[in-house]
Design a protein around this nucleic acid. Structure first.
Lengths: 116, 116
DNA sequence: AGAATGTGCAACCCTGGAGTTGCACATTAG
DNA sequence: CTAATGTGCAACTCCAGGGTTGCACATTCT
């Protein structure tokens, strides 16, 4: 998961993904023509994206063609949404407990070492 | 947006976020106790998270307390889901055009320089 | 006041990632 | 066959980011 996020945390890679989404298939050489970086840089980016599952490559003769994998991005989005919900739930739970358990007390000792 | 993704592309930061979601509020010093890194490292991480809007800090006396911002994560998740849908739509469009326009032709010249 | 405790700043390593160039090898085109 | 085109590998530079330590300053506790 972290792998996907790391892959997405780079502007150049988004450009590649956008181009791929616009053309369905493309080679590293072709993609590099539309960007201010060398072909090799693009190759490396594609490798990262492939490891993350955001792109898939297949060879066709001497060419290596890549396709974008929208599914993977969607999975990640859902995963993040779930995490957000978890956080919300936990915080709501804490707040509720604080009010129900002892409305007059402040500074919940939840995690403390108890020294204070 | 890239800023948020970059902030999330780091395991240690997820640990911080998880701890914060479990405790609602915590200081850098406190968070560092539960992790194998120095307080200063935690401070830096919190700064990154705050810049990304995933966390908010407010001072209370000599302490600096942080709270997790689930909303921001949810926003990002939705943004990604939207991007995934866009990719899907574009590809579907391309496929459809290829079939409707000229079912017998292969190798769409969509992006080509036209030289070939 | 004096000791604890907690922040904030700064200087400093060190590794990994982004980018480049150069070259050898494979596959097509003429 | 020969030239053109496209990949793949390797070595190398550069710097941002994660981590550390040391110290000065602020706030609280007794």
């Amino acid at each position: 998961m972290i792998e996907v996020l790391a892959a997405l945390a780079e502007p150049t890679r988004w450009q590649l993904l956008d181009q791929l989404a616009a053309q369905k298939e493309a080679t590293a050489t072709r993609l590099a023509e539309g960007l201010p970086v060398s072909r090799q840089a693009v190759v490396k980016h594609l490798a990262v994206l492939e490891r993350a599952g955001l792109v898939a490559g297949h060879r066709s003769g001497r060419e290596m063609r890549y396709v974008v994998r929208a599914k993977r991005l969607d999975e990640t989005a859902r995963w993040m949404a779930a995490a957000a919900r978890r956080w919300d739930d936990r915080l709501a739970r804490i707040k509720e407990l604080a009010e129900t358990d002892s409305p007059e007390r402040r500074e919940s000792p939840s995690f403390g070492s108890g020294i204070a």
